[in-house]
Measured scan of single mutants.
Amino acid sequence: IINNLKLIREKKKISQSELAALLEVSRQTINGIEKNKYNPSLQLALKIAYYLNTPLEDIFQW
């Protein structure tokens, strides 16, 4: 999986903590996703895309 979450999140000036709060997950979860240590569920990936107002395929590429 190619993961552009960190790049997109930083472009939008959103911290890991802010995104985690919006998604109701821990900051460690966001960190793990960004470091490719954790693959989000489809539901979480869709929520990330929604809150970042970015197409899912721009954030994650399988």
Rank of each mutant, 00 (worst) to 15 (best):
I33P: 01
V25L: 06
K6D: 02
R9F: 04
D58F: 09
N3E: 02
N53I: 05
Q43W: 13
K11Q: 13
L19Q: 00
Y38I: 15
I14S: 03
E24T: 08
L7N: 13
I1S: 12
N4T: 05
I48P: 00
S26M: 04
W62G: 09
L56R: 02
V25T: 06
V25H: 02
V25E: 05
S17L: 12
A20P: 00
P55W: 05
K12G: 04
A49H: 03
K47E: 06
A20K: 02
K35M: 15
F60L: 03
D58T: 11
S17E: 13
I8A: 06
N39Y: 15
N36R: 10
R9V: 02
L46I: 12
A21R: 15
N36H: 11
I8N: 04
Y50M: 11
A45W: 10
T54W: 05
K11M: 12
I8W: 07
P40K: 02
L42S: 05
K13E: 09
S41N: 09
T54D: 02
L56I: 13
L46G: 05
L19H: 03
A49C: 06
T54N: 03
Q28I: 11
E24M: 13
Q61H: 12
R9I: 03
L23K: 00
E18W: 07
I59P: 01
E57W: 08
Y50G: 06
L46H: 08
S41F: 04
N31Y: 10
K35L: 14
Y51S: 06
E24W: 08
V25P: 01
L42R: 10
N31I: 15
Q43I: 13
W62Q: 09
Q28A: 13
S41E: 06
T29N: 04
I1V: 11
K47M: 09
K12Q: 14
A21C: 11
N53Y: 05
W62C: 13
N53E: 14
Q43L: 14
S26D: 13
S15V: 04
N36Y: 09
A49K: 02
I14V: 10
N31A: 14
E57Q: 11
S15F: 05
V25D: 01
K35T: 15
Q61Y: 14
E24Y: 09
I30L: 13
Q28L: 11
N39H: 14
E24A: 13
L42C: 14
I30E: 03
A20E: 01
L44G: 00
A45L: 06
F60K: 00
Q43T: 12
A49N: 01
E10M: 13
E24P: 06
S41V: 04
E57S: 12
K13F: 09
I14N: 01
S15W: 04
N3C: 08
N36A: 09
K11N: 11
L56Q: 02
L5Q: 02
K37E: 14
I1L: 14
N31R: 13
L42Q: 07
D58N: 09
K6L: 07
I1Q: 09
